[in-house]
């Protein structure tokens, strides 16, 4: 993971407003826990937030700006596929942290990007604070997964031969 430049922490109310837009049923104590653990970071255009294949370090709440997500195949061709672009509000890295796998998608800033980064251990602890938190996170991942399945169906239709 690249470090970005560390900036002033995000205000709790703003943090909460953005987070509940994406994970609506996250209980308030969990939101506050995540806020207390976050580190604010800024990225310039073209700077990388995370690289596919590296150990997952935590989650990024995209507070401001646009990020390009892509993935690649280990091969001499070193091809890269554009997965999608996401803009604030968005969260990256949740499924990698939950599954304990390495980073699935490379994330690169398309514009000036401001993020709130929550380290992996703090996120996992927060999710276990209340049973409703696990359900809220599951709902977020389920929605994300559905859009991934839609992307797969598009690709299958394009590559049928």
């Amino acid at each position: 993971m690249t470090s970005g430049s560390v900036v002033q922490r995000i205000d709790l109310q703003y943090f909460a407003e953005i987070l509940v837009k994406i994970v609506p049923d996250l209980p308030r104590p969990v939101v506050e826990w995540l806020w207390s653990a976050h580190r604010a970071r800024c990225y310039s255009p073209a700077e990388f937030l995370q690289f596919e294949g590296e150990p997952s370090q935590g989650i990024f709440l995209i507070v401001l700006g646009q990020v390009r997500l892509s993935l690649s195949k280990e091969s001499p061709r070193a091809q890269r596929i554009h997965y999608r672009d996401v803009g604030s509000p968005a969260v990256l890295g949740v499924s990698d942290v939950m599954s304990g796998s390495s980073v699935s998608l490379t994330a690169q800033a398309l514009t000036e990007v401001q993020t709130a980064f929550v380290p992996k251990h703090a996120f996992l602890k927060a999710v276990q604070l209340l049973p409703q938190a696990g359900l809220a996170v599951s709902q977020f991942i389920a929605h994300d997964l559905r859009s991934t399945y839609s992307r797969i169906n598009e690709l299958r239709a394009q590559t049928y031969h």
């Binding site: 993935l71 690649s72 195949k73 091969s75 061709r77 091809q79 596929i81 997965y83 949740v94 499924s95 990698d96 939950m98 599954s99 796998s101 699935s104 998608l105 999710v127 696990g134 359900l135 996170v137 599951s138 991942i141 389920a142 994300d144 997964l145 991934t148 399945y149 992307r151 797969i152 690709l155 299958r156 590559t159």
Partner: peptide, 21 residues
């Protein structure tokens, strides 16, 4: 459930790699 869905996500990304590349 979150872990199972996350593993399904990993599988779906792998599928995209396979299909797209």
């Amino acid at each position: 459930v979150a872990q199972q869905l996350s593993l399904n996500c990993s599988g779906a990304y792998e599928e995209i790699r396979c299909l797209g590349l």
